[in-house]
Design a protein around this nucleic acid. Structure first.
Lengths: 227, 227
DNA sequence: TCAAAAGTGTTAAGTTTACACCCATGA
DNA sequence: TCATGGGTGTAAACTTAACACTTTTGA
């Protein structure tokens, strides 16, 4: 079908995507941020972003941009929303759509990340960010926290096998509050889709800790989640 | 400052806003929808929408479009998110950002609504909608329901003075489930910002029902809400 | 042998749910 | 006087929160 210019008289805009990339490292949530090497805003930090292209949906653009930086495919991503203030980008008007991604901090393309001058930074100690990126991060964090309370998305931040202590410190980092170990174990035991394995992790204690695994198929059947 | 064409090589897009306008009528949530008088998709229904202009933010565009249809200012609105599939609008590529609005169904510009060929329709019995508008509605409804459970936004759908029965049927419509009258009254009594007035509404019963009022300043101080 | 993290149950407090009858009034 | 919607309290079930000691093992 030949497209007609129905909307000829309306203005057009650059549309970008920006990615809030969460990782979990040593008990803290981290973000993967790019450090600007040049002016303007040299030394300031920014989210990984890119422009939407003609041949891709906005969701696809976000996936592409994430892959460009991390080399990762099939990552858990959610849209945070559109940011559309006129002067949000002082260079030129750009409407940006923010997404958050959850990745395992041990598993990404280190060379690519280095080439972009990107670094993991503690989310509780963020440097100055350009434009409205801080606002995007705050909104993403709130959304992620909320979602994590009723869907088991946190596992995307952990290795396939994890200890209960790792899982608990992860949720403590997400919620920003400490939890009781016995109550936590009890809740995990009630969720059949968090499966105990035969394996023991010896890296964090002499005694060793039992490793667990998330079984997503089992989750899809039962669907009760509450941490 | 003279703007430089930093982003010259990137494509530009039409950006629209679409409004999911909620009302509450006779125990049911309703949406204000436009009925198409012409082809293509004559007889199909659509959300009220419009294109973002150069001199306004995306949020401002949504407010403008809502006002164009309803004549209302300072309405409770939330962004639902961006819809960016390539072929979502079969005429031409348009990226659309959806917003939901909560209005009192007795209080809008009837002439303007009529001139747009817009009608209130029961949300549980929606007609066929164009493009991805059904998806927008579903997402808006989910978001609104979730928000209504922890912030007192429902009051935007009611007159300033309302009975507890009205409030209860509203929340029953939002959650899609019936509630116990005594438990509901108990919860309302715990919220100091839902104030009993001296007035009685005689329109729905012989005995008459006490009218209540939401006090937003009081809410901002206490901040505990749970219906 | 001891330091360090892992593992393990019970009780009290708080919250949520279930449930039925009387009241006031206009027609 | 009666039909209609408005108003009211209590007890059981369930959920959440608080709390401390023993186990294992490598250094």
């Amino acid at each position: 079908m030949l497209k007609r210019n129905f909307y000829r008289e309306y203005p057009k805009f650059y549309v970008a995507v920006d990615c809030i990339i969460f990782g979990f490292n040593k008990g803290n949530l981290n973000l993967l941020l790019l450090k600007r090497k040049f002016e303007p805003s040299k030394g300031k930090w920014s989210l990984m972003g890119g422009f939407v292209q003609k041949d891709e949906s906005v969701d696809e653009a976000a996936k592409r941009v994430l892959k460009e930086l991390t080399g990762l495919d099939r990552v858990y991503m959610e849209q945070v929303g559109a940011f559309g203030d006129i002067e949000r980008d002082p260079g030129e008007r750009v409407i940006s759509i923010a997404y958050y991604a959850l990745i395992n901090i041990d598993d990404y393309d280190k060379e690519s990340v280095q080439s972009y001058n990107a670094f993991w930074t503690d989310i509780n100690n963020l440097p100055g960010l350009i434009f409205d990126h801080r606002e995007m991060v705050d909104k993403a964090r709130t959304r992620m926290k909320q979602k994590a309370s009723y869907k088991p998305i946190g596992f995307n931040l952990l290795p396939k096998l994890f200890t209960l202590t790792q899982l608990q410190t992860l949720y403590e980092a997400i919620y920003g509050e400490t939890m009781d170990k016995r109550n936590f174990h009890k809740r995990v035991a009630e969720m059949d889709f968090i499966e105990m394995t035969d394996e023991i992790d010896k890296s964090s204690s002499k005694r060793g800790a039992r490793l667990y695994r998330m079984n997503n198929d089992a989750y899809l059947k039962t669907k009760k989640f509450k941490i």
